[in-house]
Amino acid sequence: VNVRVTTMDAELEFAIQSVTTGKQLFEQVVKTVGLREVWYFGLQYVDNKGYLTWLKLEKKVLSQDVRRETPLQFMFRAKYFPEDVDNELIQDITRKLFFLQVKDEILSDNVYCPPETAVLLASYSVQAKYGDHTKEVHKSGYLTSERLLPQRVLEQHKLSKDQWEDRIQVWHEEHSGMLKEDAMLEYLKIAQDLEMYGVNYFDIKNKKGTELWLGVDALGLNIYEKDDKLTPKIGFPWSEIRNISFNDKKFVIKPIDKKAPDFVFYAPRLRINKRILLLCMGNHELYMQRRKPDTIEVQQMKAQARE
């Protein structure tokens, strides 16, 4: 069966068999792109009901409810985010994939970004694409056809393309001497401080039926009011959580402190509850692993990167 996997900057095609597992397909993808920091990533597909779903690596690909088309379509995406890109990401390819994915999320308004930060990020993305600004090469209008700013920023501030270009160009010139790879890292170092960066939002309710957001991210769980995804009202670091479970629509978070009361919330969509739990487990596992000594493999990767 023909399969197409799109990464942020490549399109790969494979032929798989009925016995091919998600893990085997995943391993072919990471081998092809040269990625070793695989723990952040997964394969997404659209199921027959139209929902975006993560491929289960332990199961056969064709036994999962992938929308029937030729070839079968998958997207290779980051599922988990580092707590700090500067300290954690080792390979250039990892930084590049994160840079492209995060940039797309910001430009599509999936992650809110205020105008000044948007222009700053745009200047780094221009440095990452073009390298140093030179007057002879980068003549007036050099950014006209580039997708550089979130749609919301373009709509709220009625500047012309030239006016936006002028602002971005000033900072592009300032980045002179910065390697393209370093510009991608600088982009991520700024983007990771955005309130919505790396947060997975889910609809939940409290006991009296108030609709709220549950945010699951690298540091823990947060609860937001429905009209404000930026300001968490309640937070639970992973270090304080002993266990999370659900039964039907009721979730229970048990604290490590056994004297403290359990925390209960309600997630109205059963289909989503397994996904919430898996994201919690994955983020928790990475949180704990980060606080242990580097594995031999990671030590080797870091040594190679230094060389």
């Binding site: 409290n206 009202k233 604290p255």
Partner: peptide, 30 residues
């Protein structure tokens, strides 16, 4: 300066500190 202003947003990602009892209380009042 623009980078510094952007960096200050990091503290917005943390909820106010409170114990588990207070978290349940605040949650039920939302």
């Amino acid at each position: 300066q623009a980078k510094e202003r952007a960096h200050q947003k990091r503290s917005n990602k943390k909820a106010p500190p409170m114990d588990w009892s207070k978290r349940s209380e605040v949650f039920s009042n939302l």
